[in-house]
Nucleic acid binder design. Structure first.
Lengths: 193, 193
DNA sequence: ACCGTTGTTTAAGTCGAATTATACAAGATG
DNA sequence: CATCTTGTATAATTCGACTTAAACAACGGT
């Protein structure tokens, strides 16, 4: 029950400590989501006292928002928000590989916490809009367009996460294969009865 | 701030009340998961007092387990657990349509609550096993087999959920289209570099 | 009419997690 | 050295949510 005998007490300049806490909190929250993760878990993950968290963030929900903002920002900077072309999928894979925990956090957990849905709304709306534009060319309006519009982003994200879980083999090939799967969703939705 | 003036107090035989609470709890928990949903939410959804919940279930976690068991049982009875053939997809769609909230609860929320992972483990293990069997015929072992094995069940479930969200159009066509998408995942994984 | 069952209402007890307060230790730096 | 900053340790406080207790109301069958 003894703590490590002589821990030198890691001191960091304020900004770096803040960044380190954000990374640790991302990992911690990515495991079980907001409500199920205590500040104790976050503090332990950061190797730091609970009290110190309050020297950097006003509250648990403040900290969580900062984590989500960081993940959003990194993703947006990498992928961009306006267009969708041949480079988008490879870029998305690179971004996911650069920040796997943030990626999982955003798309597996944050989407559900009702209190923070607004943070995700931008991403979700953007991808849905882009998807609609792509679909409109080939899929007539109606329930099957709805089906495809809902499924394409989810399938893309799940394919990326599965790729992360599988060890991130061969990014270029991954992009091409995910494209094929997405294409088959559109194909399936556009095929007449 | 007055409650509805003359509520007749709905009385039900014990078994029916229990069933009704289970239905209501399924809806409530399906919205935000276990930890984020309070017994107050469940009681409100059931149109019943919080205290009454304890006359039917020993605790919140007991209630949740009962909800998960019910959803699992209904699904297993409908789909079966041992084989996978041409009838599985249509059957899965029928089962999902018969219990949409239970379906969403099992596959969107319960998979993450660490305390209840064991309930899902059977389903997850079964579907993964079946998926592996299908994949082994065409996809060589390695990271891409892993990728496909992880992706196929998720894509199937997400496709079903998207179909629920889109208004459950034309179940037979839906089964055929989901089959195409799943096939394209296997195709993508098995294609050589 | 009696009594068990199904409910409600209200209040109290319990418990864990968030938050705040205080005192102390030690590196950095002018 | 004096002092500011970073950090710890410990404890108190708050607060919400689960849980239990107690007393009362009405329906329904025998």
């Amino acid at each position: 029950m003894t703590t490590d005998p002589a821990r030198p007490v890691r001191r960091l300049p304020r900004a770096e400590r803040r960044a380190q806490i954000l990374e640790a909190a991302t990992r911690a929250f990515a495991r079980a989501g907001y409500t199920a993760t205590g500040l104790g878990d976050v503090a332990a993950e950061a190797g730091v006292t609970q009290v110190l968290l309050y020297r950097h963030f006003a509250s648990k929900s403040d900290l969580y928002r900062a984590v989500l903002d960081r993940a959003c920002t990194r993703l947006a900077e990498a992928v961009g928000t306006d267009h969708f072309d041949d480079t988008s999928l490879p870029t998305l894979l690179r971004a996911a590989a650069a920040d796997p925990e943030g990626f999982r956090l955003l798309f597996r957990h944050a989407a559900k916490e009702p209190e923070f849905r607004d943070v995700i709304e931008g991403l979700r709306a953007g991808s849905t809009e882009v998807t609609r534009r792509h679909l409109a060319e080939r899929v007539p309006g109606g329930p099957w367009q709805d089906w495809a519009a809902r499924l394409v982003p989810v399938v893309t994200l799940e394919a990326v996460i599965a790729w992360l879980d599988a060890g991130q083999p061969d990014p270029d090939r991954a992009a091409e294969r995910i494209r094929q799967v997405v294409h088959s969703v559109i194909e399936a939705a556009s095929r007449p009865g």
